[in-house]
Design a protein around this nucleic acid. Structure first.
Lengths: 178, 178
DNA sequence: TATTGTTATACTCTATAACTATA
DNA sequence: TATAGTTATAGAGTATAACAATA
């Protein structure tokens, strides 16, 4: 039985700018997602020796239902085009994608998923969603909807602060050590 | 304004084993934590050129209030002792920790945080908790407590399934593409 | 023999910068 | 000049395996 991550009694004195509940919610969610992603990786490992980005790129290509430019995949994965090149190299070497020239603009390369690649997606997606159900299915619909709404509200706030310079909070009030 | 990640209308037919809300809650929380960690990394970058593991190791040493064995840090960070060696190398090169021989067992090495290391912790912790407050402070206490309890319940379930062999879910019912 | 830590090595992921070839 | 992609290079992070020193 897992136990919540909690801050100590001295926390409000040490960090007056943050409520214990905000710090605890952040810590518990980071732990949860870390554990969840580890379980996902464990279940995926039996399917193919691909990185999370590799599986995700295949799922993107499968969902697009048409070949995509390398830069389109880079955008969705939030990585540089240079990083995509080596990722595509790996996927192509395993036979999961092919490169084809763009018909009208010869600078561009179209990435197309192969049948073997689609088979990987067909096997991976049920595993991913089975894990989601196994884990998050312990909550009821109302709780899940509250998670979704809460997560969205926090992400909105994060998007707002991400464009500002990082704030310089007040100093830590280091507890005296006896 | 961020928008919730939602699955499509065809989801229940395609993945009968998973409810849309479970899949959506998982996706939204992964996105949230990813965004949150990115914001944390952005704010930490102004303090010292250290990795997340580096900051965490310093915080562990600071919190322990006494020198720790290398293996103790490895345990808490969930990495091998070989990985800790190079992490400690980095921290020692920057003057944030020192290695000292264990007084009675000469196989062991005690890692001690320096004043410079403590200064880093003193500057990093307020930034971390300020970010937690900025982001999670948009929810009220009741919502935050629900997050903490829900995250703990899910982590318990994850701990339970982690020891079992990964399940092999039913096949995906691929939607017909026109 | 078992334990602690280090070294050697390798692999993945990602980034920046310079480059090619188009447009 | 600008764009799409590749190559070259580098660095972080982590792992496994072999090893040395010590218990």
């Amino acid at each position: 039985m897992a136990v919540p991550v909690r801050v100590g009694a001295g926390f409000p004195a040490e960090f007056p700018g943050c409520t214990p509940l905000a710090a605890e919610a952040a810590a518990n969610l980071v732990r949860l997602v870390s554990d969840y992603l580890a379980e996902l990786a464990r279940r995926r490992r039996n399917i193919a020796p691909l990185s999370a980005s590799g599986f995700e790129a295949l799922a993107i290509l499968d969902g697009a239902a048409e070949p995509l430019m390398a830069s389109a995949i880079a955008e969705r994965l939030l990585v540089t085009t240079a990083s995509i090149t080596s990722l595509i190299d790996t996927l192509a070497a395993r036979g999961y994608v092919t490169r084809a020239p763009h018909p009208s603009d010869r600078r561009k390369v179209l990435i197309e998923i192969t049948d073997a690649g689609r088979e990987i997606v067909d096997r991976v997606l049920p595993v991913v969603y089975r894990a989601a159900q196994d884990a998050f299915g312990v909550l009821d619909d109302e709780q899940l909807e509250a998670f979704i709404q809460g997560a969205t509200a926090i992400r909105s706030e994060l998007a707002a602060v991400a464009s500002k310079p990082p704030p310089t909070p007040g100093p830590r009030v280091r507890p005296r050590t006896p």
